[in-house]
Structures are given as structure tokens and as C-alpha cells.
């Protein structure tokens, strides 16, 4: 059964949130979702571009109270 885990990368600057996402995806199973919490706006824009490049699935991003929640599904 697919699972979702959250990586709290708030406070980390570029490319910290992306690298933390990738490390989490590496350990996840296909179909799992990883949510990254990031206060770095550049990373919020970078993550969907990276996801498209490598072939995972971008689920969406939501702006919260001074940070963003970005969700990615492991597709391969």
C-alpha cells in the first residue's frame, strides 16, 4: 500500500530541500508520496522542474504560513 512521508526542510536554502526530497524518494517505493516542507521559494519552483526531468509525478504544492508543502509521487 502506498505511503506518504513528510520531509521538513524548512530553513534550508537551495538546493537543500531538493536534495532532501531526492534522498527520501530513493528510499521510498514506487507509488509512495513524499511531501517536502520548504521555506525556500526557489526550491518550490525547482522541484516540479526536476520531477518532470527525471520522470516522477508532481502532485502539487500549497502555500502555507510562511512555507510551502510540495508533494511528489515516486513513479519509477
Amino acid at each position: 500500500m502506498a505511503e506518504r512521508q513528510t520531509v521538513d526542510a524548512r530553513g534550508a536554502f537551495c538546493p537543500g530541500p531538493l536534495m532532501e526530497l531526492i534522498a527520501a524518494l530513493k528510499l521510498a517505493s514506487v507509488g509512495d508520496e513524499v511531501e517536502v516542507l520548504s521555506s525556500d521559494k526557489g526550491s518550490v519552483n525547482d522541484i516540479p522542474a526536476w520531477v518532470a526531468k527525471v520522470g516522477h509525478q508532481f502532485v502539487g504544492s500549497t502555500e502555507l504560513d510562511g512555507y510551502w508543502s510540495v508533494v511528489v509521487k515516486k513513479a519509477k
Binding site: 530553513g11 534550508a12 536554502f13 538546493p15 537543500g16 536534495m19 531526492i22 534522498a23 530513493k26
Partner: peptide, 17 residues
């Protein structure tokens, strides 16, 4: 002084991932 990823750590992550 801020929470910017250390360059050596980034090189290591690039190699690992």
C-alpha cells in the same frame, strides 16, 4: 552562518544519489 548546504556535503550527495 545561514543554513546553506555545505559544498563538500553537496558533492558527496551528488556522488551518492
Amino acid at each position: 552562518t545561514k543554513n546553506v548546504p555545505d559544498a563538500i556535503d553537496l558533492f558527496e550527495q551528488g556522488k551518492m544519489l
